[in-house]
């Protein structure tokens, strides 16, 4: 079994769910770009950080960052050349925030009054909830439903 991936830290998740090519309806086989790959491109090519600084921001090693970044660039290139749509989804990531996930009703909720700790889900009252930071977001292979929160 391969070593589990370290959780990557994401400061700004994408504001949209993806891109679609103009002039061609190709919803089939979209390129799935993970949040970590999006973040790698954002840090490197938008914030113009060097890879060492970017890797520190995402709390992964520099070689790992390079692998994430390279995979991201290849996916973007393949989407451009093969006119595929791009979907942002999944990845082993940790948003910089305070969202919780109720295990009973499946709702996500936050705690804006940070001084008081939560004891139950605000929607169904269940005490079975977890910090969604700890669990990371599931990979697209495992689940298609859970990943679209922009936090």
């Amino acid at each position: 079994m391969p070593r589990p991936k370290k959780i990557r830290k994401i400061n700004n998740p994408p504001k949209i769910k993806g891109f679609r090519p103009i002039g061609q309806l190709s919803r089939k086989n979209p390129v799935v770009i993970n949040f970590e790959e999006y973040e790698a491109i954002r840090l490197c090519d938008y914030e113009l950080m060097d890879q060492l600084a970017a890797s520190k921001t995402m709390e992964v090693s520099r070689p790992t960052f390079t692998r994430i970044y390279e995979s991201a660039r290849r996916k973007v290139a393949s989407a451009f050349v093969d006119s595929k749509s791009i979907v942002f989804e999944g990845g082993k990531v940790n948003f910089d925030n305070e969202w919780f996930n109720c295990l009973t009703c499946g709702a996500f909720f936050n705690n804006p009054g940070a001084n008081t700790s939560l004891t139950s889900c605000p929607l169904c009252g269940s005490s079975h909830f977890q910090n969604s930071d700890l669990q990371g977001l599931s990979c697209p292979e495992e689940s298609h439903t859970q990943t679209d929160l922009t936090c």
Partner: peptide
């Protein structure tokens, strides 16, 4: 405003 958000997908 310290309003709690609940996202139900």
């Amino acid at each position: 405003y310290k309003i709690q958000l609940i996202a139900v997908q």
